[in-house]
Nucleic acid binder design. Structure first.
Lengths: 184, 184
DNA sequence: TCCCTCATGTAAGTAGTTACATGATTTC
DNA sequence: GAAATCATGTAACTACTTACATGAGGGA
């Protein structure tokens, strides 16, 4: 997965490892980290597989290594991004796929987002079922915080759904942030 | 961290490994998994360290193993939970700590939640600074989805802050879900 | 001059998943 | 009598973090 995220950064541009890390950090950094100990070995491995090209350049006394995806690399990346969402394999990485979704043609994009929306709705229903079974009386302190965590998860799912709906309709992003749009 | 989560489940109750897994799944499961390959070795290790007691019981032909925290286990757990939040060490585990917060006396609880709120506010300011630098014109498809992910992260942080504010005031949980409470 | 950011990388360790193996009990 | 759930566990693997090591370039 991480490999594809890296490749996604260098489809159209030559970048150094350092640049790639910065990009990832700014983009999905709050949710997903790219430590140097993970990135540099990955770049080496991907180059070895022929998915990246490496161009070394001296800048003064400083060695810089520019990487870019090869045709094989681009093909592998697109195959991965185009594949239907699999809740089993992708669970933690939806956000990363969506982050990169601009690389896909519009019809595929719509389809993937639709699938994802369906999966999330299913999860929300699952939480609804649990919620109905939660006791509402005689709550201990313990229960209060346990349930609070549950509700937080619930809320997060709702936001995610609203978010997917928003970007599926390709509405302007600023409108999403305000959060004051009409409810479904 | 995982060790403390496990201990938190068996402070006041004897439970089997299976029960513990179920509890964790229901409580923070959407955010944090407890696979058997992680849990069973952990139970063994913690028992070896004297932090848990183990009582074996045959139920018909079925062997069941009941675990509970020892005094040493409870002390270790409380020390961990009482410690000030450290964004460096705890980053991914705030939610787990909050999930267990009912075990702490009220004044400490308040204090920890307050610290956490401060940290989150700082993060939000960081994102604000980034947001101001994002271009708003001539956005490519690529940018749309990249920024969308950014805004999602932003929104999630806002929700988290609202959530912390909510539980810090110990307001009823149902009110949080509706999301139609007054903004600060 | 000192510190920050740029820039590359490795070694050792921790955390966590997946897949398997086994078998009892309960429910349809 | 089949399927789901209860119940325990291991081995192999993958993913990821932390801490270290090294040094250039730019700005205060």
């Amino acid at each position: 997965m991480f490999d594809y995220l890296v490749m996604g950064m260098i489809l159209h541009e030559e970048l150094t490892g350092y640049d790639i890390r910065k990009r990832i950090e700014m983009g999905v950094g709050h949710l997903y980290k790219a430590s140097p100990g993970q990135l540099y070995p990955a770049l080496k491995k991907l180059t070895g597989k022929g998915l990246l090209t490496l161009r070394e350049q001296m800048q003064g006394k400083r060695q810089k290594k520019y990487y870019q995806a090869t045709e094989a690399g681009k093909a592998a990346f697109l195959a991965w991004l185009s594949a239907p969402y699999d809740p089993h394999a992708d669970a933690d990485h939806y956000l990363v796929k969506i982050f990169l979704l601009g690389e896909l043609p519009q019809d595929l994009r719509r389809q993937r987002l639709g699938e994802y929306e369906g999966i999330l709705r299913g999860q929300l229903q699952g939480l609804d079922a649990i919620e109905k079974q939660l006791p509402t009386e005689n709550l201990s302190d313990r229960n209060y915080y346990e349930f609070a965590s549950f509700y937080y998860g619930y809320q997060t799912l709702q936001i995610m759904l609203r978010w997917i709906g928003h970007i599926r309709a390709e509405k302007p992003l600023s409108a999403f942030l305000q959060g004051k749009e009409e409810e479904k």
